[in-house]
């Protein structure tokens, strides 16, 4: 069941568009914000609320890379793998992060602390390489700085 808070937030979005189903992306964002990810149940609940089929909701949910259809850790690391970061040292950061966290790209640590995901250009190519943890952007990331950065997230 969608919570009262979730429903209120979705209703607010529905009011801005000509028909209910146009707010499906916003609904997915709202539910993910509350639950961390989008489960099969969440897909069905959103579908029922917007009066569309679960398949329609899922086609949207699986299209956008920042809607998570699997559980993620408490913090999500998005490592930029686009061209400027590639030139400036992404491959090394990629390897170091996998080694430090003992996970592969796409994985979540055993203690559920971090999920590591590849990500396209973060738009700070003049300070490459870059990564983002939750909403925090880190620029000019030297391998030596990684430990201090990770330490901030429990």
């Amino acid at each position: 069941m969608l919570s009262v808070t979730e429903k209120q937030a979705i209703d607010h979005e529905i009011a801005l568009v000509p028909y209910k189903k146009a707010s499906v992306i916003e609904a997915l964002k709202i539910v993910q914000q509350h639950r961390g990810w989008i489960s099969d149940e969440s897909v069905e609940e959103i579908a029922a609320y917007l009066e569309i089929s679960p398949a329609e909701v899922d086609s949207v949910a699986t299209f956008y890379n920042l809607i998570f259809r699997k559980p993620v850790g408490r913090h999500v690391i998005l490592l930029c793998d686009s061209i400027s970061c590639y030139v400036m040292g992404y491959p090394r950061l990629h390897k170091l992060l996998e080694d430090k966290l003992h996970i592969r790209m796409g994985g979540t640590t055993a203690d559920n602390r971090f999920t590591l995901l590849p990500n396209v250009c973060l738009g700070c190519c003049d300070h490459a390489p870059a990564l983002m943890i939750d909403k925090d952007l880190y620029r000019d990331v030297e391998p030596a700085l990684l430990d201090d950065i990770l330490k901030k997230y429990e």
Binding site: S84, V120, G123
Partner: peptide, 10 residues
């Protein structure tokens, strides 16, 4: 602004 290498609109 998602073209890789682009950071002007930011």
């Amino acid at each position: 602004e998602m073209e890789p290498g682009t950071f002007k609109d930011r």
